[in-house]
Design a protein around this nucleic acid. Structure first.
Lengths: 205, 205
DNA sequence: CGCTATTTACTAACTGATTAGTCAAACGAC
DNA sequence: GTCGTTTGACTAATCAGTTAGTAAATAGCG
């Protein structure tokens, strides 16, 4: 964004975020320690503590890092056509993660800590609200243009979010490889059957 | 099973399972220690180790205990009428958990450990297969009776499972109180729009 | 019945490893 | 030389798990 790093950008914060990711992937949240992050970082544990006062600070920063990455991928959808935009959004939410499965695992682990760490919960809520708003906006835009049925946009957006979160959870927990694909199909069925107006329908099943 | 306990059954295993539940609820999986379980149990840590060799053994036993409880609630649905049975199943999966939210939290926490503990993953897969089979059977039964459209029952069952898991995840992670209610409504929309035949349709929205 | 023998269920005290976090000293770059 | 960064050695707390010993219930047996 600022300037392309020549070879390797020795930005300590970025490096520590990457190291945290690798450590989280390798050992899981429950066994995520400063020592293990330091090992991935290639420096001592004190070096980590120089950049982040406490473990909680580091984890909060890491969560921001993770969620920002996600927001970035959604933000670069430029299309304004409701139908196409909906397709692309659903792809970003349900198809792209296939290639970033360990990020999905990391995310779920952080998520399961939300009930115990208010900082986590707030960040997830904020991120969710952003995505949900994007969906709701597309639906409302579609309704205005007569492409979508005049449904409760808020409910429809929440329904799609449930499908997204369900697929992600199942991919991780049950190692169900096609959970995302099934969800993509289900989301399409939902859009076609509940949202799309008759004239736009091109036959389900 | 053997004989009804007079006042309180001092079955140590059952007591330890309850203690584990309370400790998990209070501290979360990442901070779940033998000591904390022992505190809930009201005995020493060695007492826990007397009944369960390792922490992993205890947690595996606890997961069995949790999942058995869940299976029991689904098993006592007696209705054979496909439409009614589907409604009751969805209620069990999406309405009942409202009153057992901390069990939902405990479950999600255990779930997020699945990628790192094969024993956990297998148990969740088994439990999921059971529930999914129940749904698939109802759908197939409905298709046979002409109440449901001749759809891909396997896919429809998976779609409903995604909705269930999504709602549960969101309830826990985002503290979204009406996620389960939204999912219940979405599941009904799905059943009505995708499954139910024209004659059975009583109008959505 | 009555007297051991064993089993069940525990406790207090411990071990060695690991945890997050601290700090004085030192390194390397400008 | 000094500022930003890092290290090694440290602390106090906590971790899972072990040990020896004990009190009470249960079983075997005459």
């Amino acid at each position: 964004m600022a300037d392309p790093p020549e070879h390797t950008a020795p930005d300590p914060n970025e490096e520590i975020m990457r190291a945290t990711y690798r450590a989280l992937r390798k050992h899981g949240y429950a066994d995520l320690t400063i020592k293990r992050i330091a090992e991935e970082y290639g420096k001592s544990t004190a070096a980590i503590h120089y950049h982040y006062e406490t473990k909680d600070d580091l984890l909060a920063a890491y969560l921001d890092y993770l969620l920002d990455q996600f927001v970035d991928t959604v933000r670069d959808i430029k299309t304004t056509d409701p139908e196409e935009r909906m397709e692309l959004l659903l792809d970003k939410l349900l198809v792209d993660p296939v290639d970033h499965q360990d990020m999905l695992i990391a995310m779920l682990e952080m998520r399961s800590q939300a009930p115990y760490k208010e900082a986590f919960c707030e960040r997830f809520q904020q991120n969710d609200e952003y995505t949900r708003y994007m969906l709701k906006a597309v639906i409302n835009h579609g309704i205005d243009e007569g492409i979508f049925e005049n449904v409760d946009a808020e409910h429809a957006a929440r329904a799609l979010m449930i499908i997204v979160d369900g697929a992600r959870t199942r991919t991780v927990v049950l190692d169900e490889e096609d959970a995302l694909a099934t969800a993509r199909r289900t989301a399409d069925e939902y859009v076609t059957a509940i949202l799309s107006t008759e004239e736009a329908a091109d036959g389900i099943e």
